[in-house]
Every structure is written in C-alpha cells, then in structure tokens.
C-alpha cells in the first residue's frame, strides 16, 4: 500500500465531517472516492495532505505515519493535490504556474524535461505559456492545475473534483487524460461527483456517505451495484 488511512476523523468545530474513514491505495492503481455533496470527500483529501488537522485516526504514506505533518513537507515527499476549484495563480503566467509546480527541483534540465512532458500531454497549455493563469478558460485552468501537480512527479496524485463546472466535452477530455496517466503507471486517488465517469476508469472505489465509507469494492462491481446505480448513477 502506498497510501492508507486508518479510521480517519475530522471535526470542524462541532460538525463531524469524517467519522472514521479507512481506505487503501495500491501503487499503480486508480482509486476513486465518490459520494454526495458534503459527504466528506474533499475533507478526506485535505486531511491526507495536511491542509486540515485530523482529530483522530492515522494516515500512512509508504508505510510511514504522516498524520498531521505540514503540507509542504508531504508535497516534498511525493504527495500532490489538485485542489477543488483549481487554485491556480491567476496573476502568474502559465509558465510561472508550472515553474512553481517544479519549485522543489533544483536541476534546471530536469525542470525543462518535465515541462516538455506536461506540454506534450496538454498541448493547449503550450500555446498559452506566457498568458496569465486567470485569463484561461475553466477547462484550461483545470488542465493547468493538473499539469502543475504533474510537474512534481508525485508518487500519489490526489485529485479533487477535476470535472467540476466543466462542459461535457472537457469533462471527457480530463478523464481521457486521467486514463492516460493511469496507463503510464501513475497512482491516483480521485474524488468525484461524476460517479459514472469515475467508476468507468477506476480500479477500486469507495462510496462515502456522511463521513463514513458506506460501500467499497472493485469499480466494475460497484458500477453494477443496485444501490450505487440508484443513488449515484441516476439509475
């Protein structure tokens, strides 16, 4: 297991956002976490990467306890998050955004190589390298956010709602890119509301309901599960 949470709990004041979430991500697999709004999907990712402090439970990364460690240290160790709402730097150019992704790399040539890689994956960004991030369209911003995280060559890529607010053809594009990454051997933990797409490309899935894991299993099996179809696939 490259990433594992054990009975993870998070409280926001008196609101209990997570009530004991245990999930496992195997190296080279794409695991998805689906659920309704407010089920605690984003909170799970934030708790893993240290943006919120868990009130209980533990997080293991490469078999080391990383619970409550500061975000920037986890990023340096190989966890990357593409946050919900993209959070690109609007007043920095696309190139500068990507450069920040590679901030921890000291080797200039390595940085250039990764830049070439992500531009090959997202040619659209290559055309807009000197444009400010804030002037990109929503889909382009999402690509930039993913590309920026990929500049870090993460061991595990955490994605928070990458399809949120995008037109259907762009949603399709983003999921194609995720499949491409998966084929390239990336380890991904994907949080999605778009359960249909997520289950289609994932190996394993967890269904989160009010801060607890309600269901889990291979994605193929869950996609055929009656409860999942009723609640999440609009069956």
């Amino acid at each position: 297991m490259v990433l594992e949470t054990e009975d993870l709990r998070v409280d926001y004041g008196h609101v209990r956002a997570l009530r004991g979430v245990s999930l496992k991500v195997r190296r080279g697999s794409l695991v998805t976490l689906i659920g309704a709004n407010g089920a605690g999907k984003s909170t799970t990712l934030k708790a893993i990467i240290g943006l919120v402090r868990p009130s209980g439970g533990r997080v293991f990364f490469e078999n080391r306890d990383i619970t409550g460690r500061p975000t920037h240290k986890l990023v340096a160790q190989g966890l990357s998050l593409v946050p919900e709402g993209r959070h690109i730097f609007p007043d920095l150019t696309v190139r500068e955004n990507l450069k920040l992704g590679a901030l921890l790399i000291r080797d200039r040539r390595e940085e250039e190589r990764r830049l070439a890689e992500v531009m090959e994956m997202f040619p659209r960004l290559g055309e807009r390298l000197n444009q400010k991030g804030g002037t990109l369209s929503g889909g382009e911003q999402q690509m930039l956010a993913i590309a920026r995280a990929l500049m870090q060559k993460p061991k595990v890529l955490l994605l928070d709602e990458p399809s949120l607010g995008l037109a259907p053809n762009l949603v399709q594009l983003i999921f194609e890119k995720l499949e491409e990454l998966k084929r390239g051997g990336a380890t991904i933990l994907l949080v999605e509301q778009n359960a249909y797409q997520a289950l289609r490309i994932a190996d394993y899935a967890y269904v989160l309901e009010t801060g607890r894991i309600a269901l889990e299993g291979p994605a193929k099996a869950l996609a055929e599960d009656r409860r999942v179809i009723e609640h999440y696939l609009g069956g």
Binding site: I49, L51, P70, T71, H72, V75, A76, S80, L81, P83, H87, I88, F89, P90, D91, L92, E96, K99, L100, G101, L103, L104, R148, A149, Q152
Partner: peptide, 24 residues
C-alpha cells in the same frame, strides 16, 4: 527567480503555495 515567483504566488493563493511544497 523561483523564490520571487513563489512570493507573488503567496499573495495570490496562500493555500495553493503550500501545495507547491513551500512553507508559506
């Protein structure tokens, strides 16, 4: 410089800068 880009980044999005592996 990267430090300068990071500095401008902090003013735009302090949360995202942490995700770049920098201590804000």
């Amino acid at each position: 410089t990267q430090l300068g880009i990071a500095l401008r980044g902090v003013s735009q999005d302090p949360m995202a800068i942490k995700l770049m592996g920098v201590d804000a």
